[in-house]
Simulated scan of single mutants.
Amino acid sequence: MTDPVTWAPRRGAASAVLLTRLAAEHGMPAARCLAGTGLTRADLADPEAEISAGQELALIANLVGALGHVPGLGLRAGARYHPTTFGLLGLAAISSPTLGTAVDTGMRYFDLTYAFSPWTAERTTGALRSVIDDRAIRASYGEEVARFLAERDLAAVATFVRDLAGPEVRLDDVRFRHARPSYAALYETVLGVRPSFGRTVTCGTISALTLSATLPQADPTTAELSRRHCERQLRARRSAHPGGVLAARVRADLRRRLEAGAGIAGQAETAARLGLSERSLRRRLRSENVAYSELLAEATSAAARAMLATGRTVESVAAALGYSGTSSFTYAFKRWTGTTPGAYSRAAASVSITAAPTPPATAAASVSASVSASVSARATASGRARR
């Protein structure tokens, strides 16, 4: 059975940049987009930056919450996802010999895309149908976010296909789970085909004849080199951030709980929220080479640093995270960061005083990043001195 959530632990920031620009065009400032994501505008300005899937989902939830009244917001977003948006994966697709090969490459390196739900490829007589399973997104983020992502992802596919094979090439059939909206005409404009609504699944179909179309920029050397780079990029991300599908779900669940002020979650409680037994959760995380305790420490450390960066006392942060006292929290914080929470708070205060004015929504993340860099530099200098 296909897991209803699938995303790599990390992804490029290009999609977040694109969505932030879309929001700005509709009068939504970047600070509001990034609120609660842990991201800053500096993060998005770095072309090599990687962010978590949870951070991009938080950004999307902000976007939909503020601009949900804009007709076809997801369609408008998806129309901006050109092959270049996907970096090396886009280059691998552009240089493929046929559209079908490009599609196969995209499915092979699916973790380098910006999707959040699994796509199941179903090959039928004369066609390829890709079905999106967005059950987990609907359950965790609601129907509005799920509809935005369905619109975005299928509009991105339609845009990708046209960019690769020519403006006259299009999907043969598109279906959506959600009901027909008042702006249904916009779907045909963006997708190039009139979709149907209220179906049992969300999916897109493309004929075998269309898939056989040769691509104008095909180059076997470039295609092979790009695929090798994609393999290396995947390996690097997975080794730097252990875990897979389930680990990403646990990370997102822990982050949401801590941001809501609900404190640290035990393994049994998290397993129940994810619809698993504690034993299954432990076993499946082990198969992804990560332990629940590692994910919990990662999420708690990030939440603690963010709260301390806003000026909260060590006592209040310890209580918010569910620690019985400051001593146990201090011990854990020093194990995570190499410094005490008090020292971290003082460093955060000095950074806040000397830094240029920062929008409130991004201040905590910006200060946290600066303090972490400062603490790291001091630790390195101290180590050198001892040597």
Results as ranks from 00 to 15, higher is better:
residue 259 E to R: 15
residue 53 A to H: 08
residue 326 T to A: 06
residue 376 S to M: 08
residue 289 N to C: 09
residue 141 Y to F: 08
residue 263 G to R: 08
residue 384 R to Y: 14
residue 152 R to T: 12
residue 45 A to G: 12
residue 94 I to R: 06
residue 181 P to M: 00
residue 122 E to L: 01
residue 250 V to S: 13
residue 224 E to R: 13
residue 248 A to H: 09
residue 101 T to V: 05
residue 255 R to D: 11
residue 41 R to G: 10
residue 129 R to D: 01
residue 67 L to G: 10
residue 31 A to P: 11
residue 273 R to Q: 14
residue 220 P to N: 06
residue 115 A to Q: 14
residue 112 L to K: 05
residue 154 L to N: 02
residue 357 P to Y: 04
residue 84 T to P: 02
residue 87 G to V: 12
residue 223 A to E: 11
residue 144 E to T: 13
residue 122 E to V: 05
residue 212 S to I: 01
residue 323 Y to M: 06
residue 165 A to P: 03
residue 1 M to L: 08
residue 214 T to C: 03
residue 296 L to M: 13
residue 59 L to R: 03
residue 358 T to G: 03
residue 386 R to F: 12
residue 28 M to K: 08
residue 237 R to H: 13
residue 379 A to R: 03
residue 222 T to C: 06
residue 372 S to V: 08
residue 116 F to E: 05
residue 305 R to P: 10
residue 144 E to R: 12
residue 28 M to Y: 08
residue 386 R to N: 14
residue 133 D to A: 06
residue 345 S to M: 03
residue 83 P to I: 02
residue 272 A to P: 14
residue 376 S to C: 07
residue 45 A to Y: 05
residue 144 E to F: 03
residue 33 C to R: 04
residue 195 P to N: 02
residue 114 Y to C: 14
residue 149 L to T: 06
residue 218 A to P: 05
residue 124 T to W: 10
residue 194 R to D: 01
residue 220 P to R: 08
residue 167 P to F: 00
residue 206 I to H: 00
residue 226 S to Q: 13
residue 365 A to F: 11
residue 77 A to R: 07
residue 49 A to K: 10
residue 242 P to Q: 12
residue 35 A to G: 04
residue 192 G to N: 00
residue 173 D to H: 05
residue 384 R to D: 12
residue 305 R to W: 07
residue 197 F to K: 10
residue 253 D to V: 08
residue 30 A to F: 02
residue 346 R to I: 08
residue 204 G to E: 00
residue 385 A to M: 13
residue 153 D to S: 04
residue 57 L to W: 00
residue 356 A to N: 10
residue 80 R to H: 09
residue 349 A to T: 14
residue 316 S to G: 01
residue 79 A to D: 02
residue 261 G to F: 04
residue 239 S to K: 11
residue 297 A to Y: 04
residue 136 A to N: 15
residue 158 A to Q: 01
residue 150 A to F: 01
residue 26 H to W: 05
residue 193 V to I: 05
residue 231 E to C: 00
residue 374 S to R: 14
residue 383 G to F: 00
residue 239 S to R: 15
residue 180 R to T: 06
residue 372 S to C: 15
residue 39 L to F: 08
residue 288 E to C: 03
residue 59 L to M: 04
residue 275 G to Y: 07
residue 189 T to H: 07
residue 47 P to S: 14
residue 80 R to P: 10
residue 168 E to D: 13
residue 371 V to R: 09
residue 372 S to I: 06
residue 81 Y to E: 15
residue 125 T to I: 05
residue 294 E to I: 07
residue 361 A to Q: 14
residue 280 S to L: 07
residue 269 E to W: 03
